[in-house]
């Protein structure tokens, strides 16, 4: 996937360069500025993620959200999913491991869904672009929606 992205970006750059050197320079300048704008928040968030993941282990998580943990387990799973920020290709194997370690489908559904839709640690960055109100609304609704997903999973799986 990374290769595809670099390929598309490289193709775009070459095309742009063939059309106008000046505009390509400007594009790269804008790219750098856009990156520089979020870099401090971004590095701070990376440290925060490192800290959270070092404190919480897979066993700790699965002991909290086991099959019999019921509604409390769903809420805990949603909160953990909202706070942590794990890339998808790590999250799915982790979620599968948690299921094997005794977590329930409903709780895992809530965990996976909030993991993706709600990002408490990235909120400072989201606020930079969308402001406080829209950011709180999006994350709040994502949280409620994830619990809905969990209920449907609990019924169907």
């Amino acid at each position: 996937m990374t290769i595809v992205f670099y390929g598309v970006a490289a193709a775009g750059l070459i095309l742009s360069l063939a059309k106008s050197k000046e505009k390509t320079k400007l594009a790269l300048k804008k790219a750098w500025k856009a990156f520089e704008n979020i870099m401090p928040q971004f590095l701070g968030i990376i440290l925060l993620i490192g800290l959270l993941l070092s404190v919480l282990s897979a066993e700790q998580i699965s002991s909290l959200i086991g099959k019999d943990s019921g509604w409390i387990g769903v809420i805990i799973a949603s909160i953990i999913g909202s706070i942590t920020l794990i890339p998808g290709f790590v999250a799915f194997p982790l979620a599968a491991a948690l299921l094997e370690n005794g977590a329930g489908y409903m709780q895992i559904g809530a965990f996976v869904s909030t993991l993706m839709m709600v990002g408490i640690v990235t909120m400072p960055m989201e606020i930079l672009y969308f402001g406080k109100k829209a950011t709180f609304l999006r994350n709040g609704m994502g949280f409620v929606f994830s619990i809905l997903v969990a209920i449907v999973m609990g019924v169907l799986l």
Binding site: L13, K29, A31, W32
Partner: peptide, 15 residues
């Protein structure tokens, strides 16, 4: 992932 994303943002912005 980020460098190509930002390059594409720059290109989109200009073109």
């Amino acid at each position: 992932v980020l460098p190509p994303i930002f390059i594409l943002i720059g290109l989109l912005d200009v073109w």
